[in-house]
């Protein structure tokens, strides 16, 4: 569509200013994560001296008894197990909700959707109590298990399975395929784009989730990355080692920034409202 004269230039300038503002917090964080602590107290926008010391400290020493590499390892384990677990649970369940009939299907699906609207804070007290009773506080399983029945994957995959034409499984059944074969050999390969979307947004959620991991982990050995960062930032002498905290914040965000650069279109497609909302 042809655009108004001048409107494009205005649009470009407004966007450029806002985009610069939106980049500012991270750019400032990254710049000073490469600066010696002494630079912080100077009135400079961009450091005048550069160093990798902050990163060496973050990756080799413990800060306040917390080790960033341990946090990265914990987050990696949590992410891998949650992604695998959620795919193994969600793909079959979404297929069942979309294309099979069973008693209680609609009621169950309504409950699942309803839980999406429920604030996470409602559960933290009782879930903590439950986890304490079964001895999972301060364990990685304590972080992982409550994240498995997430709804978004069910929602995205069900949307996909619902729009696969019926003729497809009817044809396969005439050729003698069983229910399970139809699901595994026909439906799962077809769903691959949606499965990748769910994988990417689950990885994001796992790595970045804050509230529940904060509640269920309070020993350094069990903390995932966001809890480690929050713990470090609570340091009362923060100004002294500000640059180290900035380096920890950046290095732990790097995997997700890379995922964003590679998988932006899946992140976007996972967040777009599908036909459910239109």
């Amino acid at each position: 569509m042809q655009q108004r004269k001048g409107s494009q230039a205005t649009r470009w300038i407004v966007l450029a200013v806002l985009a610069a503002l939106w980049f500012l917090p991270l750019v400032s964080l990254v710049l000073f994560s490469f600066a010696p602590a002494s630079e912080v107290l100077k009135g400079v926008f961009i450091p005048t001296q550069w160093t990798l010391d902050n990163y060496t400290k973050v990756l080799t020493e413990t800060q306040r008894g917390v080790s960033v590499p341990t946090g990265i390892w914990n987050s990696t384990v949590i992410m891998v197990l949650q992604v695998v677990g959620i795919l193994l649970l969600d793909v079959p369940a979404a297929y069942a909700f979309a294309r099979t009939k069973f008693i209680g299907r609609n009621v169950l699906f309504a409950l699942v959707l309803l839980s999406m609207m429920m604030p996470g804070i409602l559960e933290v007290i009782s879930l903590y109590d439950l986890m304490a009773n079964i001895g999972l506080v301060n364990t990685l399983w304590g972080v992982i298990l409550p994240g498995l029945p997430r709804v978004i994957g069910i929602f995205i995959l069900r949307q996909f399975f619902m729009q696969v034409p019926r003729e497809l499984d009817e044809a396969a059944r005439i050729d003698g395929a069983t229910d399970f074969q139809v699901f595994l050999k026909i439906m799962v390969p077809l769903a691959m784009p949606s499965i990748i979307t769910v994988t990417v947004i689950t990885a994001l959620y796992s790595w970045n989730n804050f509230l529940w991991p904060l509640i269920v982990t309070n020993t350094p050995e069990a903390m995932p990355v966001p809890v480690v960062i929050a713990y470090l930032s609570a340091d009362t002498s923060a100004v002294l080692n500000y640059t180290v905290i900035l380096a920890a914040a950046f290095v732990t965000s790097l995997p997700m920034i890379l995922l964003f650069l590679v998988g932006q279109r899946w992140i976007v497609s996972g967040m777009r409202p599908t036909s459910g909302i239109k």
Binding site: L24, P226, A249, I267
Partner: peptide, 27 residues
């Protein structure tokens, strides 16, 4: 610029803004 913060967790975002708004030494 606007989509990138989606992948940044709240702890890092809070640190980044603390750093921006830090008295005297913040941007």
């Amino acid at each position: 610029a606007f989509f990138l913060p989606i992948v940044i967790n709240v702890a890092v975002a809070a640190i980044a803004f603390n750093w921006l708004f830090e008295p005297n030494i913040g941007t």
